[in-house]
């Protein structure tokens, strides 16, 4: 399911312009949305989910105009949405919670609803906890309930807003694998400010900064933005003054720095292989 966004602007009451003339095409598959805090990721996702009305511009999801009531309804029928801060009813069990959301999503037949919930609990590895109340769930478990909830109606479009925040490394990896497995023939839009999440799951991504699109393309392209600009330098003296230090690791008597800068930051500096994070940071470098 394709998302076509054109000249999308959202100005909140009070004048904050969270999105500013955004143009973006999201194809089927896994797609990353990177951006720092306040970049406008959540705003974009809430617009796609039909929760917010754009101030101007058009958004079409699978050909449906999201600003029209019937278009929004059509999109919501095929949408799975995991909000940045997912709430649950603490007094329901995981199974009951999913059953309720499934009913709201129109899964009316009880046997098929039960089967679907059983499958999903299996997918997110919550079967042993399915009949426990949600108030006893850990953050990671709630995230998994959240993703199960988003998948109930077998959505063509899955919008997940910073799903890995607050997860431990193992949970995070499990979550990434789950998301990639789900992508297949649907559109999965993953927003995050954790570059590694995108590096490990997406082929294409967009980068938002202050409501504007500053990059869109393949992961490799963003990595190449840092090509010949990443250096490592080991010194026991003062930290390199040139460029942006992205890592500092004590090594023997000195410190090993990783620096992003166009020219070698010192005589002993060695060029290094850029990562997606380097590419992202190079992109966000002021005065690039």
């Amino acid at each position: 399911m394709r998302i076509e966004i054109s000249r999308l602007t959202k100005t909140y009451k009070g004048g904050v312009r969270a999105l500013d003339g955004l143009d973006l095409d999201v194809p089927t598959g896994m797609y990353g949305l990177l951006g720092s805090n306040g970049a406008g990721k959540t705003t974009l996702m809430r617009i796609l989910a039909g929760l917010l009305r754009p101030t101007s511009g058009t958004v079409r999801v699978g050909g449906h105009d999201i600003t029209a009531a019937d278009g929004r309804l059509a999109v919501q029928r095929t949408l799975g949405y995991l909000p940045q801060s997912l709430g649950v009813y603490p007094d329901l069990t995981a199974r009951q919670f999913l059953d309720y959301i499934a009913l709201l999503k129109g899964l009316d037949s009880r046997p098929s609803r039960r089967r679907r919930i059983g499958e999903l609990l299996e997918t997110v590895a919550l079967t042993p906890d399915a009949d426990r109340r949600l108030k006893g769930f850990s953050g990671g478990m709630l995230r998994r309930v959240g993703i199960a909830q988003a998948l109930l109606a077998d959505p063509r479009l899955l919008v997940v807003d910073e799903p890995t925040t607050g997860l431990d490394p193992e949970e995070r990896i499990r979550f990434r694998i789950l998301l990639s497995r789900l992508a297949g023939d649907r559109t999965v839009l993953l927003s995050t400010h954790i570059v590694e999440d995108v590096a490990q799951t997406c082929r294409s991504l967009a980068v938002l900064d202050k409501g504007r699109l500053v990059f869109r393309g393949e992961v490799g392209e963003l990595v190449s933005r840092a090509e010949r600009r990443v250096w490592t330098l080991t010194t026991s003296g003062p930290a390199p003054s040139q460029g942006r230090i992205v890592a500092a690791l004590p090594e023997g008597a000195g410190t090993r720095y990783r620096v992003i800068t166009p020219t070698a930051p010192g005589p002993s500096a060695q060029p290094a292989e850029p990562t997606l994070e380097d590419g992202y940071l190079a992109l966000m470098e002021p005065g690039r």
Binding site: L51, Q76, Y81, G87, L104, K105
Partner: peptide
Amino acid sequence: LGMTDVLDTTP
């Protein structure tokens, strides 16, 4: 509880 987003995105 933060339930409105999930509820409002259902049809």
